[in-house]
């Protein structure tokens, strides 16, 4: 098969041919065992047949598993079904694939074929003809002579997508009222309740060192946003709070926030100020709160300031106090938007 007429095209053209290495051509074809030994060829054929046979067995096995296995919807039962069906399907497919490839590699001709590559570009004549045809078309349409018509056509085509895009953009963001980012369902007197059991929490039961995952108590918020409604998920996404208690003397508080805590109990938004993950890992010894998504670390003893990681701002604090029955309640909504930053956050 060696084709010694082929000349390299990739060396610099200035160098005379005699100073270049010449292309030795396609390497000599090596015969396979099966090409010379009919026994080896026969053996390959038997392997291919066996592989196709394996595929048939795989399909049968899959069918047997599908119809034969008991109806068992426990996790273990489903695992067994999954394993047997998967093995059956896998062998059914692998048998065909490996059989075909072995057939091609061991029995089909392995003589390399040389094919000419043609230039991708059109011939100069074809190009000239194409340009001529386009010019003829333009001339036929008479665009050049009818400027106003051209302008009208372009304007109409440019404008019509508006009738598709405007309703789409108008409706896709529902009411587009992004001021909802600023408010949560927390307000004066809403009791702090455990998440997800929704049980109001008394200040007396919160021991020093403990951390509570907190949601607003269902009975204190509007009916249409209570747990079980769809709006609840939207509200919960903003209203989740992490509450911890420490020794009051461990707490560093800004002067204007001295009355936002209650006897060492502080409550902060659980929505990370980075990109909004729930900040959930509290380390009692250091009072550090770690976001498991991107490791922003907040110091709960010091206004939830960022001590490490990609967040910039402290977690917003929920001002709390106790009501007449001793339940922890919010004094108001958060005083700033919770969660990740957005462009008009401070506006």
């Amino acid at each position: 098969m060696s084709d010694s007429n082929l000349v390299s095209t990739s060396s610099d053209t200035e160098v005379a041919t005699s100073e270049q290495f010449s292309d030795p051509g396609v390497p000599e074809h090596k015969l396979r065992l099966g090409d010379t030994d009919p026994k080896a060829a026969k053996r390959s054929e038997r392997i291919v047949i066996a592989l196709f046979g394996l595929s048939i067995l795989g399909t049968i096995g899959m069918m047997a598993a599908y119809f034969g296995l008991p109806q068992d919807t426990s996790i273990a039962g489903v695992r067994i079904q999954n394993l047997t069906l998967g093995l059956g399907l896998g062998f059914a497919l692998l048998g065909i694939g490996l059989g075909a490839i072995h057939w091609a590699k061991s029995l089909m001709s392995d003589h390399e074929v040389v094919e000419e590559r043609h230039s991708v570009e059109s011939s100069p004549e074809a190009r000239a003809e194409a340009i001529q045809k386009l010019q003829d078309g333009v001339a036929d349409a008479g665009v050049a002579r009818r400027g106003v018509l051209k302008g009208a056509a372009i304007s109409a085509v440019a404008l019509f997508p508006l009738s598709f895009a405007v309703p789409l953009i108008g409706e896709i963001g529902a009411d587009w009222n992004i001021s909802k980012f600023r408010h949560t369902v927390w307000r004066r007197g809403v009791r702090l309740a455990t998440d997800p059991t929704n049980r109001p929490i008394k200040a007396s039961e919160v021991t020093i060192g403990s951390a509570y995952h907190v949601i607003p108590y269902a009975e204190d918020i509007d009916e249409e946003v209570r747990p079980g409604s769809h709006a609840w998920l939207d509200e919960k996404a903003k209203a989740i709070v992490l509450m911890v208690r420490m020794e009051p003397n461990e707490l560093k508080e800004e002067d204007d926030r001295k009355d936002w805590s209650y006897e060492g109990i502080v409550a902060y938004s659980k929505v990370c100020t980075h990109v909004g993950c729930p900040v959930a890992l509290y380390e009692r010894q250091t009072h550090h709160l770690l976001c498991p998504c991107h490791q922003s670390t907040f110091d709960m003893a010091d206004g939830a300031k960022v001590v490490f990681g990609p967040a910039k701002r402290p977690l917003p604090q929920l001002p709390i106090t106790v009501d007449s029955e001793g339940y922890l309640v919010a004094q108001s909504d958060f005083t700033e938007p919770v969660g990740p930053s957005f462009w008009e956050r401070l506006k």
Binding site: S2, D3, L6, V7, S8, T9, S10, D23, P24, G25, V26, P27, L93, L94, I96, G97, L98, G99, A100, I101, W103, A104, K105, M108, S109, D110, E112, V113, V114, E115, E116, R117
Partner: peptide
Amino acid sequence: GGGRTDKNVVGFPLFPVYTAKAGGFFFV
């Protein structure tokens, strides 16, 4: 490699070798 240039392609024909190899490879 030897015999391979920018102006040719050296290999095996689509039918049957690559039909079997590539088709078989899908199943694999």
